[in-house]
Write a protein that binds this DNA or RNA. Structure first.
Lengths: 252, 252
DNA sequence: CCAAAAGTGTTGAAGTTACACCCATGC
DNA sequence: GCATGGGTGTAACTTCAACACTTTTGG
């Protein structure tokens, strides 16, 4: 492919004004985590975490770009992504440490860049992120341990989290976050982690079973030092129906 | 101001890759309408409608740009805008009629442009849109009469409408759409227009009154050929509380 | 036998749906 | 007096929140 070929030029040329950033939530059956990467520049700098993200290519759709960037930076693949929104304040790249980093890696470090953020939910055990490209390392960090990120990424993370909280109220989102078989307690912990508050065990189980979102398996936990829990799996048919229609529990 | 002055240069220079588009919903006490403009080029072309929108300036925040563009194209001012999202498919400007128009008005007509859409709700009687700039005319068109728009604007409209439907379930949005005093039947019609289905009169009134979102005024309708209706106004205090917290009527 | 989490029902309160008739006014 | 939309109550049903004890297993 030649750089002078028009179409491949477009495919190979970065758009210096538009980036994508990904907020990837994972759940380790205990707490919510977020996939972040460490910027790799000189070791002397304080390492600051960022969301996986980068400039898009000229001829690349946004969702495709988000998929690609996520893969390049972390090795994660084929993940459902939902748009969080566009972040375009003129001062979003103005922190001194961020500018320094941009000068080191970008061809147009002073350019105004608008970023489109996406979020996704993944089963933390099926996806082992690994460092690549200019990411020094990619890692799952517990959500509540993050209090600072580069650029406006902390803001993006908060917005994505708000979207997730709203979404869980009306759609069965959480299922992408869990392994194929899981216990109802694990499912409950997930909901509690997302909503940020405790739920009543009996009420939660009743509701989940009534929605027919889960099906009991034959299998039970083994070698646990307490009464072993039933495993469940998702009922895909009902899951898809509910994804489509939402829980629709509103008062009109 | 000189074009060679760096900061004013940035303020005067268009960003050829980013635009904003506005979905402005209005309500005439009967049906939902959308503010659209007619593209003004040669009269021989079939007139196709677009959402108010244009390129942003380099040093302009997105929300500010949306405010500005809306004002320039329609004369509407100081409107609350909420982001719908970014629309960036590479083929979004590829329709032949759209390309022709872009060649006529844009400095870089072939550029790939990503647009950030915003939506708002306005009181149709307080805002009289007027043509200006390169908008031949601005007009309120009933939502259900729109089946085609330029670019990907129809898609943007549908997405904005979906957001509005979701929002009305958990927040008292509709109030921006109504005049200061209104009857409960008018409020109900508004909800029906947004939700796209009929609601029970008694249940609706009960619910609204219980939420304490509205307050009865002394005034009643006059000169109507039926029992005159009470006027109500919004209770701003409770309105703001509900905007903040949402109705929170979900089952967990 | 002890620690740990699993699992299970009921009750009272609140909210939701469905439904039909009289009222006040203009013409 | 008639056409029009305004305004009102109740009963059956569903959903929700709160709450405590027994079971099964590993060690």
């Amino acid at each position: 492919m030649s750089l002078n070929n028009m179409s491949s030029k477009n495919n190979l040329e970065l758009n210096p004004r538009i980036s994508v950033d990904c907020v990837i939530f994972g759940f380790d059956l205990n707490q919510l985590k977020v996939l972040v990467i460490e910027r790799s520049i000189s070791d002397s700098d304080k390492q600051i975490l960022t969301l996986p993200g980068d400039l898009i290519y000229e001829a690349e759709n946004l969702e495709i770009a988000a998929d690609r960037v996520l893969f390049e930076l972390t090795g994660l693949e084929t993940i459902f992504l939902e748009q969080v929104g566009a972040f375009g304040d003129t001062d979003r790249l103005n922190k001194e440490a961020d500018k320094k980093w941009l000068r080191a890696v970008r061809e147009e470090p002073e350019a105004r860049v608008i970023t489109i953020a996406y979020f996704s939910l993944v089963n933390i055990h099926e996806y082992a992120p690994q460092a690549s490209s200019f990411a020094k390392s990619a890692a799952w960090i517990p959500l509540n341990e993050i209090d600072e990120l580069a650029f406006d990424h902390f803001d993006i993370l908060q917005t994505a989290l708000k979207k997730l909280k709203n979404k869980i109220r009306i759609q069965p989102v959480g299922f992408n976050l869990l392994p194929e078989k899981f216990t109802l307690s694990q499912l409950q912990k997930l909901y509690e982690a997302i909503l940020g508050r405790e739920l009543d065990k009996r009420n939660f189980r009743r509701k989940m079973l009534k929605l027919q979102l889960v099906e009991m398996l034959e299998e039970r936990q083994e070698k646990v030092p307490h009464k072993p829990s039933q495993y469940f799996k998702f009922n895909e048919t009902n899951y898809n129906i509910l994804i489509e229609n939402g829980f629709d529990n509103f008062g009109f």
